[in-house]
């Protein structure tokens, strides 16, 4: 590890993980698996599998129900996965497995109206477009111009013809969309977060980690998720996700909107093809609704992935 974890970070993770803490620390030292997602808008998993095998790549498809998710098992030169012809032609997207889970939970379908509120760099937006078979509409929003360019480039390479890219602060966008009468079938709130789950791919997160940032992000995330719920159709679904372990940015946010929206919103159980832990029902002296247990915590040591959190909510009124 190039950066030393701060003592308070270690203390919090130990509190979260108990006797598994050492196992967690150990997996942080290990490189991530090379995973890709087949872009089914352009090629079938079978066809890409045959092409990649013929290049000498050893491919594993870990989930029977999701043949588009592949792990490359052999050692490749640095950057080789992103430089291949198949990547340049948009036949696959280099994406960490944990980052594929929010869209698997959201299950967007052809013909739906979907909002991806913090879309850049576009891994999940391109996955949504593939699930929708380019039918229906995705509003892919982000506020950062530099990141929007990367989003546009990725949507183009993947041939996501049903996406509209917008630039606005997410909370302000939701208010405007509400005033204009837009209501969505599905919304993905993949919120800006402190990134504790990404340490394996981005060790600098350890250096940037700060408890005050967690507090301010939690406030932002609550406002973002609450704003998004306002523009969900009755019976519409929203997935809230982060790549962090901090309960203030996860269960606390879900608990906040669950209580704020009263009987308008229910938390749904999520079925994912990897090991998930139940959401916490309390942290740091605060108690959360027992319904928040339906959220999923994903730790790096459980599935050899990055860390993630996700919750799925349905608007019932």
């Amino acid at each position: 590890m190039r950066y030393e974890p701060k003592p308070l970070f270690l203390e919090r993770m130990q509190k979260l993980l108990g006797k598994e803490f050492q196992e967690y620390l150990k997996v942080l030292e290990e490189p991530l698996q090379n995973s890709i997602r087949v872009n089914t808008l352009k090629i079938s998993p079978e066809e890409l599998l045959n092409r990649l095998k013929s290049k000498g790549w050893i491919i594993e498809q870990p989930f029977k129900d999701y043949p588009e998710i592949m792990i490359i098992k052999n050692d490749l030169a640095p950057g080789e996965i992103g430089r291949s012809l198949e990547h340049l032609l948009g036949y696959y997207y280099v994406q960490e497995i944990a980052s594929m889970l929010p869209v698997l939970a959201l299950k967007p379908g052809p013909g739906e109206l979907v909002l991806d509120i913090a879309a850049a760099p576009g891994s999940k937006t391109t996955q949504i477009a593939a699930e929708m078979q380019n039918k229906g509409t995705i509003i892919a929003n982000d506020v950062n111009l530099k990141r929007l360019k990367i989003l546009a480039s990725n949507l183009e390479r993947c041939g996501a013809t049903n996406a509209i890219i917008t630039r606005r602060d997410g909370i302000a966008l939701c208010k405007k969309l509400k005033d204009a009468g837009f209501l969505f079938d599905k919304i993905l709130v993949d919120a800006p977060c402190s990134g504790e789950g990404t340490i394996r791919s981005s060790a600098v997160t350890l250096q940037m980690w700060n408890p005050n940032t967690i507090k301010s992000l939690s406030k932002l995330q609550k406002a973002l998720l609450a704003s998004a719920l306002e523009i969900l159709k009755p019976n519409g679904e929203i997935v809230y996700s982060t790549c962090t372990h901090a309960p203030e940015e996860n269960e606390e946010v879900v608990d906040f909107v669950f209580k704020e929206f009263g009987n308008e919103v229910i938390i749904e159980k999520i079925n994912l093809p990897i090991k998930c832990r139940l959401g916490l029902t309390g942290w740091d002296g605060r108690e959360y609704s027992s319904e928040v247990k339906k959220s999923c915590r994903i730790y790096p040591q459980d599935n050899d992935t990055e860390g993630f959190f996700l919750a799925k909510l349905r608007k019932v009124k």
Partner: peptide, 24 residues
């Protein structure tokens, strides 16, 4: 652009946010 948004929807969306790009 292969999406289901009509021209009217697009005009309405433009009132909500700056549209950077549509389709491919």
């Amino acid at each position: 652009f292969s999406g289901s948004f009509s021209e009217k929807d697009i005009k309405n969306l433009e009132k909500c946010a700056f549209i950077e790009r549509m389709g491919v």
